[in-house]
Structure formats: C-alpha cells, structure tokens
C-alpha cells in the first residue's frame, strides 16, 4: 500500500519508540498491543505507543484510519478488543475528552456548563468559583451567566475547553476540537490551546486531519494508517510556532507526502481528503 514511498518499510508490529526526553519520569500513558474490532472489522491492529507525561501528541491520518477510535479507547469510552492502556499513575477518570461539537447543555448557564466538569469533585459555591477561574483563562469570565445559545461557535468551544480542564485532568484527549471552526477562529483557538497546555502541563492528545495544526501544536506527530502507526516524528521546532514559516511548511509537506502516499494519490489522480483547506 504505502510501503514503497517510505524510506523504511512499515514494520508489522512497530516497535515502541525511544523517547529522548522525560524517560526518567512516569509515562502519561502507555498503550501496548492495542486491537479494536467492530463486528469483525479490525479498526486498530496492534498499536504500541508510550507518551511521556506532559507531551503534546498529535495523531493524524485519513478518515477511517482509526484515530478517533484510539482516542475513545484512551478516554475509556470503549473497551479494547485486545491489548492494554495504562494511565501512568493516574486513573481513566483523569482523562477528559473534547469533541468537534462543544456538547454544552443548552439549558445550563455557561458557568454551570463548566461545573459539569467537576461532577463528583466539587459542587455548589466552590465549584462555581473554580469554574469562573477557568472561564477567565479562556477569556469568557464576562459571559458566565449567559445561555450557550447566544455564544459563537468559537466561544462555545472555549466553554467546552474550560469544562474539560476544570477538573484538572492529567490527560486531555481532543477529537478534532477545532474542526468545525472558521480558519481565523481556529488559529486563535490553537494559540489558546497551546497557552493553556503550557500553563498546566497535562498530556495532550490531539486527533486532527489538519497536518498544519498538528505541526504548529504538537511535540510529536503520529501518523495512523489502516489501524497501525505508519510514522512517528518529533517536532523539535521552538514555540510559539506560526503558520507559514518555512520550518513548519517543510515538516508539514513531509508528513503530507507520506500521508498521501504516491500509490494512493496516483490511483485516484488527486490528493485525498486529508489535504488542508
């Protein structure tokens, strides 16, 4: 399939990568031999991945490559068919997931939507206090008392981010959280996401089809193809990174060309959907 375009053949069972930094510290999470089948269809076929605590990992791939499934397994929304996911010293409950849709409760005020993130952790006044602090972090403190329906798409997604972070999770799983936003709001949100991540040091796992977004935000990019890790690269660029700089563009095109694969592009005569708009 993709093999001849790669400088090295894809191993049948990719080895766990050695990570130069943070090897002494506990891993954020550790995935071993992960297999997921739905009705006989294998979506993930043996994924091994060790992510150090505090790393910003991006997972890119074509639609149907299994990236969202991997994220759902990581967040504990589904159970793996085979293999294990170990969450360092933390519990699955310490993993929060953010979706492409904000999924706010339309009948709860903004601040009460954020306190949903404190279910089982805090309630009443202390919960509201914490929620307000998070809202200030995403620059929405003055909208705390409003209904979600009056907010814009980007603002709703910021509320969802505040809700995901208010419980101070160790791992934040992001399933294309910026996919539905317009280009400008998206770049703003990327900046916000990076700022919040640097401020708090949780492990972030971002699933995206937008390679440029991955390059701008991530420490490390994993390319998933047909349920396997096809590529695993570090992004050693200094932060904050900006869209369109030569280093970013170079890495982006390198990953894109591997993602598309000569084989695939030739057969269809054009680039598949993964190309960024």
């Amino acid at each position: 399939m993709l093999d001849h375009t790669f400088p090295y053949p894809i191993p049948a069972s990719p080895k766990v990568r050695e990570i130069p930094r943070d090897v002494s510290g506990p891993p954020g999470f550790e995935i071993r031999g992960l297999v997921k089948r739905f009705d006989g269809k294998t979506v993930l076929q043996g994924v091994d991945l060790v992510v150090p605590r505090g790393q910003f990992l991006a997972i890119v791939g074509k639609s149907g490559c299994g990236k969202s499934t991997l994220l759902r397994l990581l967040a504990g929304l589904d159970q793996p068919t085979e293999g294990t996911i170990r969450h360092g010293d933390a519990q699955t409950a310490d993993t929060r997931i953010m979706f492409q849709e904000p999924r706010l409760l339309p009948w709860a005020r903004v601040v009460d939507n954020v306190t949903v993130g404190l279910t089982g952790i805090a309630s009443g006044k202390p919960a509201r206090e914490r929620a307000r602090r998070r809202l200030a972090e995403v620059r929405l403190e003055d909208r705390a008392g409003e209904w979600p329906s009056v907010l814009s798409g980007g603002q709703r997604q910021r509320v969802a981010l505040a809700r995901a972070l208010v419980g101070e999770p160790r791992v934040l799983a992001l399933d294309e959280p910026l996919g539905a936003l317009d280009a400008l709001t998206r770049i703003e949100m990327q900046g916000l996401l990076e700022r919040v991540w640097r401020g708090q040091g949780f492990t972030a796992v971002l699933v995206t089809h937008d390679v440029a977004e991955a390059v701008v935000l991530a420490d490390r990019i994993v390319v998933l193809d047909e349920g396997r890790i096809a590529l695993d690269v570090d992004v050693p660029l200094p932060r904050p990174r900006r869209h369109g700089t030569p280093e970013v563009a170079r890495l982006e095109s390198r990953i894109l060309s591997r993602l598309l694969g000569g084989d695939h592009a030739e057969r269809h005569g054009q680039a598949p959907v993964v190309v960024r708009a």
Binding site: V116, T119, G120
Partner: peptide, 11 residues
C-alpha cells in the same frame, strides 16, 4: 451526544 458527555464526566 449530550448523554455521552454526561457519562464521560461521571454523572
């Protein structure tokens, strides 16, 4: 999706 969200947050 909202029901799933509630479950994720441990309701």
């Amino acid at each position: 999706q909202l029901v799933e969200m509630g479950r994720i947050y441990g309701m």
